[in-house]
C-alpha cells in the first residue's frame, strides 16, 4: 500500500530525514518510535504533504501512485489520513460542517454523489459511539476550546467518519489520560480491517499495550535503524533510546 524508498527531507536547509525505507501492506499496523528530534513527526508531515518541508530525494508510492506528486487535499481524497499531534482550532466552523465538507470532497473524488444531510447525520451518530464523543462537541466550533483529550478523540472520530485507507496517528497518545487512551485505542482497533493500514507514531510504548502493532520501527537521526515486532517496543521501554544510540554507534 505504501512504499517509501530512500526518502530524504529537510526544513529550512536542515536535513531531518536522511533516507527512510519502509513498506506497509494493507491490514498491517506499524509503530514508529524514536527519541525527540529523530524525525518522527517530520515523516508524518512529509507524507501528508505539508509544504514547509523540502523533499530532496527518494520516492513514495501510495496505492501505486506517486504520493509526493499529489497536493495535500488529493492525498487525503486518495485515502491518506493524518491524526494531528496538535489539532488545529477553527472558530465559527462546527465539526459537523467541517466533516460534511470533507466527506463530500472525498466522495466527489471517488465519483460518488454528495451525501444528503439525513444520511450524513446517521453516519456521524453511528461513529460517535465508537469514540464515545458527545454530540454537543460536534456542534461547537472545531477544536475551539476543546480539552487536549477531546481534540485527540475528535481526530479519531474524524478518521472513523472518513474511513481512510492509510491512517497516520502522530503522537495521538500524548496528553491522554488512561481512560481517553483506552477509548482512542478501542476506536482504532474497531476500525482496523484487512483493507486499511495504520501507522502509529509515538514516543512511548504505552499506546502499544492497547493497539498491538505488527511491526515496530525505531527512527533515529532521520533513519530507521531497527525494525522488529512488538517485543522491540518493550525492549525499548526497558532499555531506553540510549541503547539504540549505542547500538547505532557500534554498527556505524
Amino acid at each position: 500500500m505504501l512504499i517509501i524508498d530512500n526518502l530524504k527531507a529537510s526544513i529550512e536547509e536542515k536535513q531531518i530525514l536522511k533516507g527512510i525505507n519502509l513498506q506497509i501492506k494493507a491490514g498491517e499496523v506499524h509503530a514508529i518510535m524514536g527519541p525527540n528530534g529523530s524525525g518522527k513527526s517530520t515523516l508524518a508531515s512529509v507524507l501528508a504533504g505539508r509544504d514547509s518541508y523540502d523533499v530532496s530525494d527518494g520516492s513514495v508510492s501510495f496505492l501505486g501512485k506517486d504520493l509526493l506528486d499529489m497536493t495535500p487535499e488529493l492525498r487525503a481524497r486518495e485515502g491518506l489520513f493524518l491524526a494531528f499531534q496538535y489539532p488545529i482550532e477553527i472558530p465559527g466552523v462546527s465539526s459537523t460542517n467541517f466533516l460534511k465538507a470533507a466527506v463530500n470532497k472525498i466522495r466527489e473524488h471517488r465519483g460518488q454523489d454528495a451525501m444528503d444531510a439525513v444520511t450524513f447525520l446517521k453516519l456521524i451518530k453511528e461513529k460517535m459511539k465508537l469514540v464515545e464523543i458527545d454530540q454537543s462537541l460536534l456542534s461547537r466550533s472545531l477544536n475551539d476550546g476543546f480539552s487536549g483529550g477531546e481534540k485527540k478523540r475528535n481526530e479519531i472520530f474524524q478518521m472513523a467518519v472518513l474511513e481512510p485507507r492509510l491512517a497516520i496517528l502522530d503522537e495521538t497518545d500524548s496528553g491522554l489520560d488512561i481512560d481517553a487512551l483506552r477509548i482512542v485505542a478501542n476506536g482504532v482497533n474497531t476500525l482496523r480491517n484487512k483493507d486499511n493500514a495504520t501507522v502509529i507514531v509515538t514516543h512511548y510504548q504505552r499506546l502499544l499495550d492497547y493497539i498491538i502493532p505488527d511491526f515496530v520501527h525505531v527512527l533515529y537521526d532521520g533513519k530507521i535503524v531497527k525494525s522488529g515486532t512488538k517485543e522491540l517496543a518493550l525492549e525499548l521501554e526497558e532499555k531506553g533510546y540510549d541503547w539504540i544510540r549505542e547500538d547505532e554507534q557500534v554498527t556505524s
Binding site: 501528508a48 504533504g49 505539508r50 509544504d51 497536493t71 495535500p72 487535499e73 492525498r75 487525503a76 481524497r77 489520513f81 493524518l82 494531528f84 489539532p87 488545529i88 477553527i90 466552523v93 460542517n97 467541517f98 466533516l99 465538507a101 470533507a102 470532497k105 472525498i106 473524488h109 474524524q158 472518513l162
Partner: peptide, 16 residues
Amino acid sequence: FYCNQRGIDTEDAVAL
C-alpha cells in the same frame, strides 16, 4: 493545511 488534509482544497478552506 488542516482542511487540506481532510480533502478540502484551499479555496473552499478559506471560504469555510
